[in-house]
Design a protein around this nucleic acid. Sequence first.
DNA 1: CCAAATAACTGAGTGTGCTCATAATTGAGT
DNA 2: ACTCAATTATGAGCACACTCAGTTATTTGG
Lengths: 200, 200
Amino acid sequence: MQPAPQTLGRRERNKQEKLDRITAAARELFTQFGVDEVTTQQVAEKADVGAGTLFLYAKTKAELLLLVHNVKYAQALDVGIEAASTEVAVLDAVMAIILPIIECNRVQIENGRTYLREIVFGDPSEPHHAEALSLTIRTEAAIAGIFSRDEQLLARDPEKLARIVTSIMFISMTSSANIGHTDAQVGDEIRDQISVLLGA
Amino acid sequence: MQPAPQTLGRRERNKQEKLDRITAAARELFTQFGVDEVTTQQVAEKADVGAGTLFLYAKTKAELLLLVHNVKYAQALDVGIEAASTEVAVLDAVMAIILPIIECNRVQIENGRTYLREIVFGDPSEPHHAEALSLTIRTEAAIAGIFSRDEQLLARDPEKLARIVTSIMFISMTSSANIGHTDAQVGDEIRDQISVLLGA
DNA sequence: CCAAATAACTGAGTGTGCTCATAATTGAGT
DNA sequence: ACTCAATTATGAGCACACTCAGTTATTTGG
C-alpha cells in the first residue's frame, strides 16, 4: 500500500488524462478545420480513444465544442474586464468588455456561432453547458457592475440592463445577416444599440 | 389546344399540388408530434412523394418547419397588430403585439424554439427563410411604429429600440432556462425588460 | 493474494437527414 | 404523331452522430 502521492487512484488519473487528450484533440481539430468539418471519429482517433468513449466525456459533439470554447471565452472575458477597469465612460467600459468577446467568437466564426447557439439551445443540465452559463452570468455581472457606477443607470436596474445587453450581443454576433461583417462592424452595431439603450 | 383555364401548364400545376401536399403533411405531423419526433420519410410518405422529392421543395428539414410555421407566425402577427391598435399606452401596445407571438411559439414549444433558432442560424438564401426574415422585419416595423407615437421615444431612434425588443424577445422565448415557464411568465420577463429599456 | 463487484472502455451497429445516378414526365419543334 | 432536350421525381445509398451489449481495467473485501 503506497503513500498515494496524489490522493487520486489510478482510475481517476486515467480519466483525467483521457479527458485531457480528448480536449486537446478537439481543440486542435476544431480550431484548424472548424467544428462542422471534423467528425467525432477523427477526434476520438486523435485522442486515441474509442469512438464511444468520447461520449462518456461529452454527451454530444456540441458539448465537446463547449468544453473547448469555454476556455477561450473565459480568457476573453478576463481580458475585457481588465481593459474595462481603466475606462471612465460607461459606454467605453462596456465596449471594452464586449470587444474581446466578439473577437473570440468570430476568429473562427462557424465555431463561435455554434458555441453561442449551444448556450441558448443546448441542454443546460450538461456540465460543460453549465460552465458556459456561468460565464454568461459573469459577463452580465461585469456589465451590470459598470452600469452601477453611473447614478442615472443605477436607478434603472443595472442587472436588467445587462441582460438586455447580452441579448443584443447574442443576436448581433450570431445573426446570419452579420456573417460577412468585420468584427469592427459588429462592434459598431452593438455599440449603437447599447447607446440607444442607455438613453440617447 | 385548349384555352388553358389557368395560365399554368400541367408541370406547374403538378408542382404546386405536390408542394401543397407536402406542406399539409408536414403541418399535421409536426403539429401533432413535434418536429423532432417526425422523420422526413414519414412526411414524404404522408405527402405521397418520394423521400428525395421532399428536398426539392425544402432544402432541409428545418426549412420544412419554416414553411409550416411562417403561416402561424404571420397570423399571430396580424392578430397582435390589430390588438395593439386599440391600446393607448406604449408598453401595453407593444405587449399586445408580442403576446400572440409568444403564444404561437410556445403552443408546441419544441417547434417554436426550432423555428426561432432557424431564423437566426439558418441559411438566409433559402426562400422560406427569406419569408421568415420578412416577418421579423414586419414585427420590428410594427413595434417601431408604436414607439414612434411617443415624443420621447421618437427622439431615441424607434427602429433601433424595436431591434432591441426583438433581441429581448428572441432570447426570452428560446432560452432553455425558460422552457418550464408559462407564457405569462415569459411575457412578464419580456415586459420587465422592455420597461427598463424604455427608461424607468 | 484472490474473487467478486464495480466502473470504464470499446467499436460494430443503428437511425436519420440528405445526396445522386437513373428514370419518368413534360412540352416545344417538326 | 414523333423526337428530343429539359425538367422533375425517385429511392437506394451515404455520412455521421450517437448507442449499447459485451469486454477490460480497477478497486474492494476477505
